[in-house]
Design a protein around this nucleic acid. Structure first.
Lengths: 110, 110
DNA sequence: CGTGTAAGGAATTCTGACACG
DNA sequence: CGTGTAAGGAATTCTGACACG
């Protein structure tokens, strides 16, 4: 996926009414999941929430988990675990990259 | 590009205020370009316009052409020409496919 | 805990029109 | 032709709170 496609997915441009239509959730529910830190819309200057397609996908996953009786608190914990794993992978990758550079790296500026 | 990425690009979910922010155009301008048939937003049930990322890109191109002194009428004509070319290619492709099928095609149902 | 709802206000969007040029 | 603007109305969104359970 190119960087451009990524920007489509992550750019926060969709207002809550549209998100409600797409996901089938009420605005109340969508705001509540934000309160529980499951999604993180941006705000315009005057305070209206803006969501990305990625947020919508996240909401779809939340819906499924809620239907399985999972509580928002647990969903949040799962999210934090996943983030942690990703961060750890990043650190590992950077370490490998750093060591390769230290031994075989090309130094561009003199 | 996968079908999913395509849907991000073409799904009409962005309201005019956001489009205005992103493109730098006034709402007046955006509505006018619609009147001139340069863009085709969808409408919600209650009549508010919804744009896609593709529409935004289209608007960016319009901006450049307008800066070059091209009139909306001419921009529309260019668009129609391009569409025509695409349609012609589609027909050619389908004819080739059809002929291949007629001679060597596999018939799935007996 | 998760969600519905009524309340009041602020911001958004829409249309049709007049204006300038 | 392309765009600005004031006008009036309708639809959207926001917050904080009460309710149920």
């Amino acid at each position: 996926m190119s960087a451009k496609d990524e920007s489509y997915k992550h750019k926060k441009v969709i207002s809550i009414g549209t998100v409600s239509e797409i996901t089938g959730l009420t605005e109340r529910q969508i705001r509540y999941y934000e309160e529980r830190k499951l999604i993180f819309p941006e705000r315009t200057q005057k305070g209206t929430r803006k969501y990305s397609f990625n947020d919508i996908e996240q909401l779809m996953e939340i819906v499924e988990k809620m239907e399985d009786g999972v509580q928002t608190f647990e969903i949040r914990q799962e999210m934090l675990k996943k983030e942690k794993k990703i961060d750890e992978k990043k650190i590992r990758d950077e370490m490998i990259r750093g060591q390769l550079n230290a031994r075989f790296g090309v130094h561009k500026s003199p």
